[in-house]
Structures are given as structure tokens and as C-alpha cells.
């Protein structure tokens, strides 16, 4: 299973490295979202700095929708999905592989966005361990939910509108937990973010488990 996961993950990341859709389109999109937040909340640092964590995670969530859509657009082109299904790879492995690839892309995106938040909103980066570990847990959770809903909605002709409707409400706890963890860390209260870190961890474990079990039947003939 793990071997299959590594295979699928490397395949997705290699496609991504060659096509550079993430770098050329998703990352600039996230940057544009940050700029628009800045415009909407006004030029004063007093308004932007306290909101930095929340704006960062909203930008991540919106970009995650694009990343998931891209990950399944790759499969639907040239009927690559059938190839994947008939490849004899373990469905759980495919789920973990695709999830890991999306999580890796999200982590890169979060690194870029962190720089953007520090630059544009004047957020002082503190509590590095909490920042990094919450990014890690949140990315895994988002990627897991994203892959489940990605395969569910990829059969629909209206997938562009269906995926955000399904994905964003389910991801609400991630937005909440990650924002609060970042708030605490940025305000120098990194010690009090334990409850939010555990929320993110529970979310990630829950949906990785569900996806691993449920991906087989979903992939069969959607």
C-alpha cells in the first residue's frame, strides 16, 4: 500500500513539476487573494495585523480547492482515471499518494503565503514550531478531505461548482483551529495553542482513516 502511495505521489508531483500549474497559477491566485484582503480591510496596519492569521488560512482554503481540482483534472484528461483504476494499485495507496502530493503542494504554498503575510500585513512571525506543525496537520487534513470530495465530485459535469460547496463547509474546523493556533503563536502565546493543535490532528487522522477505507468503493466506478 505504501509503495503504491509513493508511486502515485511521485507521479502527481512530477506532473506538477513539469506543468507548473501550481507555481504559475495557484500561487499567484493566492497572492492576489492576499492583496484583495489588504484592499478590503484598508491600509492601516492596526486592522491588518490582528486579522493576518485568519486571512492567511482563508487564502489557503481557497487555493486548496484549486489544487484539488487540478489534481483530478490531471486524472480525467485522456481517461487517465481508467488507467489508474485498472493499474492494479491499491485504492488506499492511490488515496494516500494523491493526498500526499496535494499536501506537499499546500505546504509549499503556505511557505510562500507566510512570506506574503509577513510582508504585506506586517505580521511578526513568532512561535515557529506551532506555525510549522499546524501547517503540517492542517495540510494533511485538507488534502484528505480534498481527495475524498475530489473523487466524489469528479464524476459530475458541474464539478467546478460542486467541489467548493462540499469542501469548504467540511473544512470549517480546520480554518478555525489553524487560525486560532496561528493567532496564539503570532501573539507570543504559543503555549496555549495545544487544544487547537489537537483539533487539527484529530481532523487529519479522522479523514485520512475515512479516505483509506472508503476510497476503494469510490474509485471503482464513479
Amino acid at each position: 500500500m505504501l509503495h503504491d502511495a509513493v508511486l502515485v505521489c511521485r507521479k502527481d508531483l512530477r506532473i506538477e513539476l513539469r506543468a507548473k500549474i501550481g507555481l504559475n497559477q495557484v500561487a499567484p491566485f493566492a497572492g492576489a487573494v492576499l492583496l484583495l484582503f489588504g484592499l478590503a480591510l484598508g491600509p492601516s496596519r492596526q486592522a491588518l495585523e490582528p486579522a493576518a492569521a485568519g486571512l492567511f488560512w482563508v487564502a489557503v482554503l481557497l487555493s486548496a480547492v484549486l489544487a484539488v481540482q487540478r489534481s483530478f483534472a490531471v486524472e480525467s484528461a485522456h481517461a487517465a482515471r481508467d488507467g489508474l483504476r485498472l493499474s492494479g494499485l491499491d485504492p488506499a495507496g492511490i488515496f494516500l499518494g494523491k493526498g500526499a502530493a496535494i499536501a506537499a503542494q499546500l505546504l509549499v504554498l503556505e511557505a510562500l503565503l507566510t512570506a506574503g503575510v509577513a510582508l504585506l500585513f506586517g505580521a511578526r512571525l513568532a512561535g515557529g514550531i506551532v506555525l510549522v506543525s499546524s501547517c503540517l496537520a492542517a495540510s494533511i487534513g485538507l488534502a484528505a478531505v480534498g481527495v475524498i470530495y475530489g473523487v466524489l465530485s469528479s464524476a459530475a459535469r458541474v464539478k467546478e461548482t460542486l467541489l467548493p460547496l462540499l469542501f469548504l463547509p467540511v473544512a470549517a474546523p480546520v480554518l478555525l483551529g489553524a487560525t486560532k493556533a496561528w493567532d496564539d503563536a503570532l501573539a507570543g502565546r504559543a503555549g496555549s495553542s495545544g487544544v487547537w493543535m489537537s483539533l487539527l490532528a484529530v481532523f487529519a487522522v479522522l479523514y485520512v482513516a475515512v479516505g483509506t477505507v472508503a476510497f476503494g468503493p469510490l474509485l471503482e466506478d464513479t
Binding site: L152, V202, F203, A214
Partner: peptide, 29 residues
């Protein structure tokens, strides 16, 4: 919305069942 996505009845049913579980699991979280 996902229930309304057309397809083979059995596929739609299985898809909906998983979506229903995923949605319900989110409620306590």
C-alpha cells in the same frame, strides 16, 4: 447536491452513502 449528480443508480447510491458519512463525521468536530 451530490445526490443529484447523475450516473448509474448503484454508483450514485454508493457515492451518496460515503458523502453522507463524511458530512456526518464533521458535525461533532
Amino acid at each position: 447536491a451530490i445526490r443529484n449528480v447523475p450516473g448509474d443508480p448503484e454508483t450514485v447510491a454508493r457515492r451518496s452513502a460515503v458523502a453522507g458519512l463524511v458530512a456526518f463525521l464533521d458535525v461533532p468536530v
